[in-house]
Write a protein that binds this DNA or RNA. Structure first.
Lengths: 216, 216
DNA sequence: AACGTCATTCTTGTATACACGAATGTTGAC
DNA sequence: GTCAACATTCGTGTATACAAGAATGACGTT
């Protein structure tokens, strides 16, 4: 449990939303949440305020909080921005790479190789996350890293859906290889381009996303 | 005053921070704020929670809230991300431009022309803001627009400092012209490139920023 | 004189109580 | 039978009270 109940609740509710335990559009009753977590309404409200500021829920004055339902179109927009930010991170990483970052990228990359080779999509899901975070860190831009991590977190559930798609695992990993090559070669423009297409969801991948969302 | 005291306070405190009334590093005492605004501590705390989530202040458990002090380096990083996002907005705007957006851009652009011609840096400051917002909207990506507006807001005070620099007004406006041309010509890559350099702070402009920050 | 320990005080964190607006269900009229 | 007005209920918004941890200062010891 975090330092104080408010933050703990924020993380707890955030996780519940990102894992669809609290479905999009669902109403979040303060009293119910307070009882469920065995605390008073005060920290619950504080947690909700923060989630509202982050953009995960919407608090309509006097009318309670509801989980935001980002339709396929908005999710596409979020991936579009994510692609842009990751592209920037990649290009900076290529320019500024040092030994520490290089090793972190290599380590996470080879872990991806293992889980992709084993066809373990759950393991790959985590390793992939670490790989991308290694690139954010390698950008040496704290602000960019924070923005990337936050957006990455919000997109987590949809990323997971994507990995279920047939052949996506090996495709993803081979894209990683090219990205690593570009970064290690110091080719910022290439790293940017590759990351943009790796992260963005164009063409049939968007239809896949819509389909997998609809099937839930 | 907004719908509820909490939100009102959030905006109020946010403005106070962005206008340096609450200086970076300053401690924000809940009781003092409550007295100052004539409310109880509860809504003050809720406002602070939100500002913490946005990243304007930092709340250290049991040790109170302090206004975050983004040093020159971090501000540079923020402009770097802003440049990237605006570049994306510009490129999308060029592709998706419709009559409504076209008119909005034209209108705000000519207002910039007037204030720049008059050498009125305060007026230009506002008109420039509207011009950029018109481009965000023209991107037709709600999420991107929100992100841009939010970051733009956080960078507002530094932008203001920048405009004070000699000749910056006319330089800025002539860059606008090129940007408008690129967007209207449907040249997304060019719009992106121009916006990136327009928004980013490279070379001597960074030194200018540091200097103007130090002189406060 | 300097440092460490303890007590006091001050501020934050949480709970509870109360006020007010919104939602809802009921009753009456057309 | 339907719709509208009103009352009731329920949930949010704010204030206050209480608990607990951190900062501060005084006192004693080395």
């Amino acid at each position: 449990m975090s330092e104080n109940v408010g933050r703990w609740l924020r993380d707890e509710i955030e996780d519940a939303i990102l894992s669809y335990e609290f479905a999009p559009g669902e109403r979040l009753d303060e009293t119910v949440l307070a009882n469920r977590f065995g605390v008073s309404r005060t920290p619950v409200r504080e947690a909700l305020m923060q989630l509202d500021a982050i953009g995960l829920i919407e608090i309509r004055p006097r009318r309670g909080a509801v989980v935001i339902d980002p339709g396929p179109h908005r999710i596409y927009e979020m991936f579009e921005v994510m692609a842009e930010l990751e592209g920037l991170a990649g290009s900076l990483a290529a320019r500024r790479l040092d030994n520490t970052s290089r090793e972190a990228i290599t380590a996470t990359h080879s872990r991806c190789e293992q889980s992709a080779g084993a066809g373990d999509s759950d393991a790959y899901y985590y390793d992939n996350e670490e790989f991308h975070k290694a690139i954010y860190a390698a950008s040496r831009s704290d602000f960019l890293e924070e923005q990337c991590v936050q957006l990455h977190r919000r997109l987590r559930p949809y990323r997971r859906l994507q990995l279920r798609v047939r052949n996506r695992l090996s495709t993803s990993f081979s894209e990683h290889c090219a990205i690593v090559d570009a970064i290690f070669a110091g080719n910022g423009d290439e790293a940017r381009r590759l990351l943009r297409t790796h992260v963005g969801i164009q063409g049939e991948r968007f239809s896949d996303l819509v389909a997998s969302m609809a099937s839930r």
